[in-house]
Design a protein around this nucleic acid. Structure first.
Lengths: 224, 224
DNA sequence: GCCGTAAGTAACTATACGGTTACTATGCAG
DNA sequence: CTGCATAGTAACCGTATAGTTACTTACGGC
């Protein structure tokens, strides 16, 4: 009797576990992100990705064409995530110093919470950004990031609490760099300096250090 | 007649081009550095290294055991180069601000001139510093770096031109990070921001920016 | 209720790759 | 001069790897 069978009529996501393209695609993308960020593009194994995703290898080629296509999808997905999160920050409501502090700490915590983003950047730069250059989806995301920082800097300069000659791109690279280098190189740095840089107390201290460095730089130069 | 043959008696380096272990070893190391920093450890091909070095592949195994042994030799050689150069800086002769400026710019220019160092760090961190941890040769090199910075900070604090609560390791990570991120990620950053960050005018400007950021941070907090 | 299309499987293939084998040439200590 | 350790060569090998082929199963529009 058909009463005990799962109802095929309902389009609910629970239904049959077979034949769920969206779930399969997402599982592949997640597995590929993990494998590629752990081992790099050349180190990642297509068979390992398929196994991690619990999916037949043939499906990777079905959905993403080839290994490179899969890598590009991972790259686009990962970049979109951070740029989207930044837009949600809503810095316009805060005074400039508080806004800058929030942006700096957001960036820092994003790096702590998303090591896969750091690894992927390292991989892509080793590749001279060849895939990023191919992607039409990623570049448009970055105008708004510059606008965000520019607005903050302008408000601060008007209120005379920031110096008025700051380049927003140069500043963003500094904010990101102060966190990126610490996190992406924490394994070598921990080893050569004989300290565990991943300890949570140290991570918190580093966050405050970065805020201090950035705000000290932004302070207007006193008149002599 | 034997008169026209190259004299084997003279031990001069010019003599016979065959059988020169030092030259062969050095050629392999150079080729391996180039190949590994261009493509990563997994991306590098043993056959390509041999060809680049103009040497039979068997020689790589003769001198370095296996691919991993070769990688370790590259890593040790590359780390030793920067740490040795730092020691030659002679910062004790300068006043603290000039000394710090010199250290910051040295680090920055080192990154510009030695992209292979940056790539190798990226590779090694992707590997969670597994090879660095194995190396007995590298760690001892780093005590003197911390001493160098510590001495500079102490002199500056005594003269009241630096704040007196600066952690030398935290500061070094900032100095390095401000340059490292810019250079190691210049391909992705140039792409997303639509600017050529490798242009020499921009590199010079970045150097000045980093000096400003570091010195602003080191300035003693004014009394309120 | 049937049929075309998209989702999914298993087994296979060509080759690129790290590493080895079996051998030869060189030069220096005695 | 000669024996022997080290430098060097060429050809080879097993396997891991990206990508394919040939086939089966489920879904949804008509």
């Amino acid at each position: 009797m058909e009463g005990s069978l799962p109802k095929p009529g309902t389009k609910s996501r629970v239904a049959s576990p077979t034949r769920d393209p969206e779930r399969t695609r997402a599982a592949i993308l997640r597995a590929a992100t993990a494998e590629i960020t752990a081992k790099g593009l050349t180190g990642a194994r297509v068979d390992a990705i398929a196994e991690r995703a619990g999916v037949n290898k043939r499906m990777l080629y079905h959905y993403f064409g080839d290994k490179q296509g899969l890598y590009l999808a991972v790259l686009e997905h990962t970049y979109a995530a951070i740029r989207t999160a930044e837009i949600g920050l809503n810095l316009t409501e805060l005074d400039p110093v508080a806004g800058m502090r929030k942006l700096v700490l957001f960036t820092w915590h994003y790096f702590i919470d998303h090591p896969e983003f750091l690894s992927l950047l390292a991989t892509e730069n080793m590749n001279r950004a060849a895939y990023l250059k191919k992607s039409k989806a990623i570049r448009p995301l970055h105008g708004s990031l510059v606008d965000l920082i520019e607005a903050l800097l302008k408000r601060g300069a008007q209120q005379k609490i920031f110096r008025d000659d700051v380049d927003p791109v140069e500043l963003y690279i500094s904010i990101a760099g102060l966190g990126f280098f610490y996190m992406s190189n924490r394994h070598t740095l921990s080893t050569i300096f004989g300290k565990n840089l991943s300890a949570s107390a140290r991570l918190a201290a580093r966050g405050e250090h970065i805020v201090e460095v950035v705000l000290a730089y932004l302070k207007p130069v006193e008149k002599t």
